[in-house]
Design a protein around this nucleic acid. Structure first.
Lengths: 242, 242
DNA sequence: CGCGTCCTTGAACCGCGTCAAGCCAGGTGG
DNA sequence: CCACCTGGCTTGACGCGGTTCAAGGACGCG
């Protein structure tokens, strides 16, 4: 009973953020919020739209993408239950990225005024948000390095480990807890769909993954995947063999 | 007299952050701080070191790099007078990046306890830091897209515009206000030195830049450079012709 | 003046983007 | 229940862009 759990965002036992996504907690601290449901593939907000507040994921999976040239897209982040997204300044900003639901999703929206008020009255909350941003920034910087320096094979391996890290695996069969298309993996890596397909085929031959065309991917040899990209310093994915 | 200036970090007229780097202001709000001088090329902190606080640049230029595989490096950010760096969580974190002085530099170091105390007593400060982080995160996400999708020619163009944006140009002759080696430009783009050299040669032939081997680069046709990378959405570098 | 460092240029190789064709699974309608 | 269609996946061939290797040049410094 009363078991303590660490916040998945800041690793702090008494972090407020981990509780923000629960309606009860938000009500308790008096934050006005709106619950919104989205179906898989729906857009939640779009690049160029007005930033009216911040989103917490109550339940579901979300990808954040930046639009590039020639209709290409770049997935810059993915998030799931209990995590924050759409976090921007509270000024008159416009979104520089778009968010899409990867599965049926319920999000909690809190408007800027409400958040500002909460920040001004609860320094610990503001501070915990600061830690969350700091961590995200750190992840983004590491990701920059990967995108700039890895070859496609390595970037695909890294993408799979990242997916596993964010969404986890299905306990029954070990498939990744989210189903991304080849195009989406390409959008994570900055590569072309065909190349991603080829690299996945290679991984399968080498028994690093098991996969079927359209359904989930199983990483059968996590340590082997880690080995591929070790030299870039990928400690964040370090894990015990299943 | 009493001219209002906007904070270069958050564009807010009465932002505290823009004043943090001045010793007077730090003394006034009672923040204990340490001033540290560094010569060009000195390391200020290193990947793996303990994060004891946060740095403000009093005067000088700094690059933040992530170490990659095979002794490669990735420049993830550059900063100059009045800006913040080394901003990490206040936990028992270790740096995931290193910082080096690009010129003789004076930085202000404020330890974690002092910052935490300030955060708890000054919600506006915490909030302004939040906005700063938010902006940095936004820039990092855009940069990810560039690094993943641009070819080397485009990345070199983007790097030059970024350098110009961060450090500005010398009013007398228009040279960039910082002198980066070919290797450093390569470290910004994830490309090889030879290729950077070739692309710079091309730009020179096309009268986009004027350059000499070891000294500064002059961007002679900013709009031409912008044109090269327009399709990726590079509004942040939009500028009037000189 | 000689040495070290950085820059430049050339040539060869190969990773990967591009184009094109074919495959496979699921959905739809007859 | 099957035929067809559609959208995603796979595979092959080809060529370009960029890395790699190697040699030489320019510049600053002792």
């Amino acid at each position: 009973m009363n078991k303590k759990v660490s916040c998945r965002e800041c690793n702090n036992e008494d972090c407020l953020i981990k509780r923000h996504c629960t309606p009860d907690y938000l009500a308790k601290i008096g934050l006005k919020r709106v619950q919104i449901e989205h179906q898989a593939k729906d857009s939640i907000f779009r690049e160029g739209g007005y930033v009216g507040g911040i989103y917490f994921i109550q339940h579901g999976k979300v990808k954040i993408i930046a639009h590039g040239g020639d209709d290409r897209e770049q997935i810059v982040r993915m998030a799931t239950d209990g995590q924050i997204f759409g976090h921007r300044g509270l000024g008159d900003d416009l979104y520089t990225v778009s968010a899409f639901a990867l599965s049926d999703t319920v999000v909690c929206f809190i408007d800027n005024d409400t958040m500002y008020d909460a920040y001004m009255h609860n320094p610990k909350l503001t501070y915990q948000m600061l830690e969350f941003y700091s961590l995200e920034l750190q992840k983004a910087e590491v990701r920059m390095k990967y995108l700039a320096q890895m070859n496609v094979r390595e970037k695909v391996a890294e993408a799979l480990l990242l997916i596993r890290d964010v969404f986890g695996t299905h306990p029954a069969d070990g498939t990744l807890n989210v189903c991304l298309s080849r195009q989406e993996i390409a959008d994570m890596t900055g590569a072309m769909v065909e190349q991603v397909s080829r690299e996945l085929g290679e991984f399968q031959k080498e028994n690093l993954i098991a996969k079927t065309g359209r359904s989930g991917i199983v990483i059968t040899n996590v340590n082997g995947m880690l080995e591929l990209i070790k030299k870039y310093g990928t400690e964040q994915y370090a894990t015990q063999p299943n």
